[in-house]
Amino acid sequence: MYSSNETTPLPPLNPFRILEQGVSIRDTIDLLVEGKKIIFIALGSVLLVTSVYLLLAPRTYKADALLRIDKNKALLAAPLHSEANQSPTEAENPRAQREVEILRSRSVLGKVVDDLNLVVETSPYYFPVIGETLARRHDSHDGLAAPWLGLNHWAWGGEKLKVTTFDVPDRFLDKEFTLIALEAGHFRLLDPKDETVIEGRIGETLTAEVGEATPIVINIAEFTANPHTHFELKRKTSLAAIETLQKAFSVKEVSKDTDILSVELKGPNPEQLAKSVNDIATIYVNATVNWESAEASQ
């Protein structure tokens, strides 16, 4: 019997006969058209959330200044109101780095805290979600905004409060007090348990004994608000106020070997920011002059 193991080779495949199955541009367009409803809903939702956030998000302001260090360590401070120098490099000049550390020191920032009374924090009570945005959009030159639907518990815009003195016992530090505007230039102060501790007139220094060696002392220089408007009032420690200022404060050399420092401070209160930056520059200039005089005398 005869058998053969030989096989007949298959003819080569023609590459032009191979059909590649894939997604064409037409298929992609058809898919997008079919899902256009879902796409538009997702896009609209993203735009709506973004718009609401931009509308309701609290504003952050920036105040900055330039400090120029000359060879004699005398400084010239000039406030700036632009967004220039957005990406300054880190201070690499040893002398500039030393000045940066001095500017961020507690001896300088602590003086700012004392001068501007930054240990006292005040904040109006706003209507939930939209209250702060409505108050921010109100023009303060138009006076106080009328309360919506008679809801005068909250602030609606145009309110002003300046507390010159607010001393509390240690156990009340960082505790939330409530300040209520009354008629005819009077006010009421509630403790963290919402109990009345002081009621008096604006401009007077008032004291309340609370069973501690240190009484509660308050003096309000200015209080413009609709009657019954509530404010949050808090007294912090000097250390806490300095740390808060340090977090919002940055100092960098504008560029290498220029001996020009950029001082920047960010926060929600533009008026307070401007005062703080100017005070920092002034304190530092005075301190530098004193140090230079002390070194010369030695």
Rank of each mutant, 00 (worst) to 15 (best):
E243A: 12
T244Q: 13
T244N: 15
L245G: 15
Q246W: 11
Q246H: 14
K247F: 01
K247Q: 09
A248G: 10
F249G: 07
S250N: 09
S250R: 06
S250I: 03
K252A: 05
K252R: 04
E253L: 07
E253N: 04
E253T: 04
V254C: 08
V254S: 12
S255W: 09
S255V: 06
S255A: 14
K256H: 12
K256W: 14
T258H: 13
T258K: 15
D259W: 09
D259A: 15
D259Y: 13
I260R: 12
I260S: 11
L261V: 15
L261G: 14
L261K: 08
L261R: 10
S262I: 00
S262D: 01
S262W: 02
V263C: 03
L265F: 00
L265P: 00
L265I: 02
K266N: 05
K266L: 08
G267W: 07
G267T: 07
G267M: 06
P268M: 03
P268A: 06
P268K: 05
P268Y: 02
N269S: 07
N269R: 11
P270N: 00
P270K: 02
P270T: 00
Q272C: 12
L273G: 07
A274C: 01
A274H: 03
K275I: 01
K275E: 06
K275L: 07
S276W: 01
S276K: 02
S276N: 02
V277A: 06
V277P: 14
